[in-house]
Design a protein around this nucleic acid. Sequence first.
RNA 1: GUGGGUAUAGCUCAGUUGGUUAGAGCGCCGGAUUGUGGUUCCGGAGGUCGCGGGUUCGAGUCCCGUUACUCACCCCA
Length: 445
Amino acid sequence: MTQPLIKTQTLSGFRDFLPAEMMAREALVATARDVYRSYGFSPIDTPALEYSEVLTGKSGEESEKQLYRFTTKGGRDVALRFDLTVPFARFAAQHIGQIGTPFRRYHIATVWRGERPQRGRYREFMQCDFDTIGTDSHLADIETLLVIHDLFGRLGFERFTIRVNHRQLLNGLLETLGLADKSTAVLRALDKLPKIGREGVQRELIEGVGAIDATADRLLEFAAISGTPGEVLAQVESLLDGNGRGLDGIALLRQLFDCVATAGVPADRVALDVSIARGLDYYTGTIYETFLDDLPGIGSVCSGGRYDNLAGLFTKQPLPGVGASLGLDRLLAAMEELGRLGASATPADVLVVLFDESRAGDYFRMARELRADGVATEVYPQARALKKQLQYADRKGFRFALIAGSDEFAQGVWQLKDLANGEQRQVGSEELSSSIRDRLSEGRS
RNA sequence: GUGGGUAUAGCUCAGUUGGUUAGAGCGCCGGAUUGUGGUUCCGGAGGUCGCGGGUUCGAGUCCCGUUACUCACCCCA
């Protein structure tokens, strides 16, 4: 009897990535990194595993339920990080003496949440965070928006909207309504407006928050405000009854929209949406959510905002900051739905056909010359039929096949076949890499 | 944690009121004469029908249980 085979399966919410997907993932990561670095954010990393108390400190019960938590053999209570913000708070408190303020970092890494997976949501996924801490300047908030904008631009998106809000608008309104202590519950209710509609939110405000009808109406009126940023701000201002906190928020948002426009961001990319609120409690100022216009249903693909004090649990030094997180896997899921993922499964541009095994050294030498010139090149590992090798090249998505047999070696030339259009030309060894690079750059521009 | 849906070939699925050796498309492998891919044609491999029990002369099909996956809620990227 042969042993029964082990069933091949991955855990729910955990995934394998095939080359074509992985290429797209890596391209996204590389772009995010480039954009962050172009603004001066520095890379950091932290352990995947932390002491549980570090992670559970501030997060509510909900986050704790989602934690992958266990006891080590040595009896330590540990957990996998469920976001990058909390580990960053620990990191900042621990190292702020060496790194100084203001401090800007980006952190691209995997996080884990034990929640039920669904569309665009996984148990193991990657976040691309960037934050500026150690300053409460509103200019850092504005620059955060610029980063988000440039990021999506560089990722190749043209149709996206960054929705902006400021927590003080709603907090100011809640003060005037006597609901200041219910802000979290109200925010969560209003956040659901697009999903459960006006009546649903109204019910939740009355039953869940305990608001009276008139108050709920006032909140809904507030959440329903729309228009250009200028129009919205004017309407909000009239609802605020001169509340100082709210008016401060309005002034900050006016500055933000002016400044961003002057800096060169098209007006239709940024919207003021007073109904976005974010569930997380620690945002205290500006709030951002980014939606793809062609696929809004998948949710926000980049969210963030300002917090008063990042690391209050770990240090007495106040560390205000602002930042955002790109949800890489959700974005990737969206791109797949939109048919925006490339099909190529190879990072190399050129496949050297191994025609004659006794000339292996010559094939390897040419491949190395091409690589030295920046052209990624794979040499087929065995001398199979030319047909097979070209089939392989086509399936994997190589752009060029390089062929040489005894005739070519005798003349010192190569057959350069462009697999995109089938054109084949004879090229001398010396011109090969420049010829390939020229044609690659044509195709990409 | 709550509610719904689905489990048949590597993938996407079909499978009539239970009835012989379980099918298709795609993919994979091979072939269509000697050094040319994508298209086409031909051939082939590949499945204890998620698992366990029950009803029945007979179960992929009906019933119960179980596990996994999936969608939505909660929450969130």
